[in-house]
Design a binder for these strands. Structure first.
Length: 852
RNA sequence: GUCAGAGUGGUGAAAUUGGCAUACACGCAGGAUUUAGGAUCCUGUGCCUGAAUAAGGCGUGAGGGUUCAAGUCCCUCCUCUGACACCA
């Protein structure tokens, strides 16, 4: 055969089609198999109009390498792909393009799929779906109803971001950091609208404690722990002087409670109106509350606002100090959604201290100052207490804190309490492009339920009923105008024939919920769907039986649940909290519903680092520094792109793109091509194999085998490059290419296959004439090193490296032999001289002579 | 401020977990081939002193410590990145 230069264009398309046609990457049918499995998943993409980004290529290639490795290693491997197509970005893009997202999304998905195939990603496409498919969101809606039925959802008036100029409700993402609307630049306010809310806080403790068993990056675990923000402390009850009002405060630093001299309360706290009603302070307080309302979330979060407050005219009685009177203030730094919204304040907190100085509120310190300018900070939890009742004179330590807590409970001043940073999850969006929330409101039933003494339905929930399950999916109507409405309500509220329906309870006229679900909904359970998302099965076994959804779900989990949970999940750290937390939450709730039998969705998590542009900025159209994977593939081929992205840096580090370095990867792929082309032209005989080269090959196999499961793709490739260097030079020296047997040449090709699926397949089939895909061949096992005749041992004198000596492999454990050999070495002689020494020999690693 | 991660050549980075620091790659320099450029191949490439492919010294953010031996372990500090942040 004549030498052919490397031309990836000549064969990449051919193999894509072949793999497609033969369903090479179809996952095994898995039911009650005892065979080991790997469910390898990349966070699925939102299919934007821009197509795949080189950043996508990085995660998907890493995931693909992992899946291919396990597939070849004999695991049942599930490696699916789908599309997260609901949500704001898609909707805004569609508004801009003046199209309905329903028409646009399929186009974008087609582009993504085409690109994914051109990259050689080994997905089982039979399981593909988009979260926007009614057959998928039928289940999302059904799950919503299950969660509703178990009491995890409630509806409540909640402030949302609202643009008074555009007259529209906004998502958090649309609010710029300076508190203005990203589209019109006007200041955003809050508006109360009824919202569906998920009681994720009910699972706070389990979401926290179950983190312990996960093989996740430490940083992500820490972020989740932080976000949940569990804090142990006490709730203290106070009477308000001259009223029957009771105020509860939360404190995480019980040792310092005797120091508190005043109380602040969040302006939006429901007890405020009661405190100020009819007093001479009312007018000022109301003005203050109004001013506070005008503050945007951003101003509050920026921390740059002035700490302000007004006196309510009322006093709380301090149970720690003989009912000493504590003035109650409204303060703009008190948060309604942390603790109880009411704080006991003292000199031992910088913020409280400054506030008290400003308004000349009396203070009382219980620990002597170290720095004369400021009081000791309670967060330090150290010092000796004074003026602290029974605890005066005691040192602040764990024992004291426990004693204080016991005392508080014994005297019934208050009780131990746990507080969380985690808040309930606002699940409503006043937007078009999301799963319609499958709930119906009936005014008549609502009235009846409120009237009825027997009804246990809370007034806010009265009249709400889930859409009957046999009506699912509740399809999103195809409409022309779906832009946000003037009232801040969902655009669906304007579609009369969709809104008006029958009450599932009384059959009378009723209205549908017009809010849609947030972007997160579809991604909360998609990984559960892949194992059973197989159209053949859908159509035959499950559809024909026409089971109730509940039975249908259970049957699916029973038959295909063996794939679950996900063994390896790969994706960006930007989802560290929200997506990962929400998905964990749903899985736990489903476990409680007995719809799943495991508690954590993702056993191992690996983060992928972002790829920056060559100029070290983020890739962005406006900078004009975007690298399009299609262009790279056209010029260098998919294999070179894959190899480069796996080799560029450790998988989880952020890294700028480098076209030069890409060319290095391209050279490597080309050299692989060339050496096999040369091999093809020589008659290879096993007996001519080079022993050292085979030893190197086995080391390489061992290295790659160990590295891939640890996502150390860069060092895998470095090892293979080393091997290729050796192979080339050995072949060069021996002046014929008979240095590796066909079997061994194939072994190297197989360990390269997960990284470079096209070139390896092409060589496998054309050079070696194989009939079935290399990707279905089995992963090579490294054999024990064939005798290494000589080993190199470094020799130190007094801890300084001086020389190396060669020792026969057999004698490597012979300590005195190694020592004698070392003493023959000229350099060692020079430094060691005639001095007395002690020798430390670590077998096979190092020899160190110590003379002093 | 809190939490997490990271500081190694001109650059991206390695280092079988305490044992020859800088593998692999990019870049650069010199050479071969070429009308030329590109591509390809070969050689060299941490820093300093040296004519040197002689010899030596110094080197993993800074400083200290443990050890025969430290990029790796311990203490103090500095810088950068990310996330959260008026959290009571």
């Amino acid at each position: 055969m004549i030498y052919q230069p490397y031309q990836p264009k000549d064969f990449e398309k051919k193999w894509q089609d072949e793999w497609d046609k033969n369903k090479t990457y179809k996952s095994a049918v898995r039911n009650s198999s005892s065979k080991k499995k790997q469910y390898v998943l990349a966070m699925f993409p939102y299919p934007s109009g821009a197509g795949l980004h080189v950043g996508h290529v990085r995660v998907y290639t890493g995931t693909d390498v992992t899946a291919r490795f396990f597939r070849m290693s004999g695991y049942d491997t599930l490696h699916p792909m789908g599309f997260d197509a609901f949500g704001l970005p898609a909707e805004n893009a569609a508004i801009k393009a003046k199209k309905n997202p329903m028409d646009m999304v399929p186009e974008h998905i087609a582009t993504f799929k085409k690109q994914m195939k051109s990259l050689g990603l080994s997905y089982d496409w039979d399981r593909e779906f988009a979260t926007t498919d009614p057959s998928y969101y039928k289940w999302t809606q059904w799950l919503f109803i299950q969660f509703y039925k178990m009491g995890l959802l409630y509806k409540k008036d909640t402030p949302i971001n609202y643009c008074p100029v555009c007259k529209t409700g906004l998502a958090e993402e649309e609010v710029l950091p300076n508190g203005t609307h990203e589209r019109c630049g006007n200041k955003i306010t809050k508006k109360d609208l009824p919202q569906w809310i998920f009681k994720i806080t009910k699972y706070a403790d389990r979401l926290l404690s179950d983190l312990d068993g996960l093989n996740w990056p430490e940083g992500i675990l820490a972020m989740q722990r932080n976000w949940i923000g569990r804090k142990e402390g006490v709730i203290i009850n106070h009477k308000v002087d001259g009223t029957d009002i009771q105020l509860n405060t939360f404190s995480a630093y019980p040792a310092w409670l005797f120091a508190d001299t005043f109380i602040v309360i969040a302006p939006e706290h429901p007890l405020v109106s009661k405190l100020i009603k009819g007093t001479k302070y009312e007018k000022d307080a109301l003005a203050f509350i109004e001013e506070h309302k005008q503050m945007t979330q951003q101003e509050i979060l920026s921390g740059n606002f002035e700490k302000k407050g007004v006196f309510t005219g009322k006093y709380a009685l301090d149970p720690f100090n003989n009912n000493r009177k504590m003035p109650i203030w409204l303060a703009n730094f008190a948060l309604m959604d942390f603790g109880t919204g009411i704080i006991r304040c003292s000199a031992h907190d910088i913020r409280d201290y400054e506030f008290a100085q400003k308004y000349k509120i009396e203070l009382n310190e219980v620990v002597d100052r170290i720095d004369s300018k400021i009081p000791v900070n309670a967060h330090d939890n150290s010092g000796i207490l004074k003026k602290s009742g029974p605890f005066t004179g005691r040192n602040i330590d764990q024992k004291l804190i426990q004693d204080v807590l016991d005392w508080i409970e014994k005297t019934k001043i208050g009780k131990r309490e746990v507080s969380y940073h985690l808040r309930d999850w606002i699940f409503s969006r006043q937007r078009y492009w999301g799963e319609p929330i499958p709930m119906v409101f009936c005014e008549k039933c609502a009235k009846n339920q409120v009237k009825s003494q027997k009804s246990k339905v809370k007034s806010e929930m009265a009249g709400w009923f889930p859409v009957p399950e046999n009506e699912l999916p509740l399809k999103l109507p195809y409409i022309k105008s779906y832009e946000p409405t003037e009232t801040g309500e969902s655009p669906l509220s304007t579609v009369a024939d969709w809104v008006n329906t029958k009450c599932p309870h009384c059959g009378g006229p009723a209205k549908r919920e017009t809010d849609t679900m947030p972007n997160w909904a579809g991604s909360c359970w998609y990984f559960l769907a892949f194992p059973f998302w197989n159209q053949e099965k859908e159509n035959s076994e499950f559809k024909i039986k026409n089971l109730e959804l509940n039975e249908n779900w259970k049957l699916k989990i029973k038959n295909f649940g063996e794939w679950l949970p996900v063994d390896r999940y790969l994706g960006g750290a930007e989802h560290a909290v929200l997506h990962l937390l929400y998905a964990r939450f749903w899985v736990k709730a489903l476990y409680d519903l007995k719809l799943l039998d495991f508690k954590e969705p993702f056993l191992q998590l690996n983060n992928v680092g972002m790829i920056l542009a060559e100029d070290h900025r983020k890739m962005s159209k406006s900078w004009g520094n975007v690298i399009n994977p299609d262009d790279v593939i056209a010029e260098y081929g998919a294999d070179a792109l894959r190899i480069y992205e796996m080799f560029m840096a450790p998988f989880n580090t952020e890294i700028p793109w480098s076209t030069k370095a890409l060319q290095g990867a391209y050279r490597f792929v080309k050299r692989v091509w060339d050496i096999y082309q040369k091999n093809q032209n020589s008659n290879i005989k096993r007996e001519k194999e080079d022993v050292k080269l085979i030893s190197k090959l086995n080391k390489t196999i061992r290295k790659v085998t160990a590295d891939i499961p640890e996502t150390k793709f860069n060092t895998s490739i470095a090892a293979m490059m080393e091997f290729l260097n050796d192979w080339e030079s050995t072949a060069g020296v021996s002046r014929d290419q008979n240095v590796l047997s066909v079997e061994n040449a194939k072994q190297f090709l197989r360990i390269l296959a997960p990284f470079a699926p096209f070139i390896t397949e092409e060589i496998w089939r054309t050079v070696f004439g194989e009939k079935t895909s290399i990707h279905l061949s089995s992963w090579p096992t490294a054999t024990e090193d064939l005798v290494e005749e000589e080993l190199t041992i470094p020799v130190q004198v007094d801890g300084k490296f001086r020389s190396t000596i060669k020792i026969e492999g057999k004698k490597i454990k012979d300590r005195s032999h190694v020592e004698q050999e070392a003493k023959k070495d000229e350099k060692v002689k020079k430094y060691l001289g005639e001095k007395k020494y002690k020798a430390i020999y670590v077998t096979g690693k190092i020899l160190n002579f110590i003379t002093n």
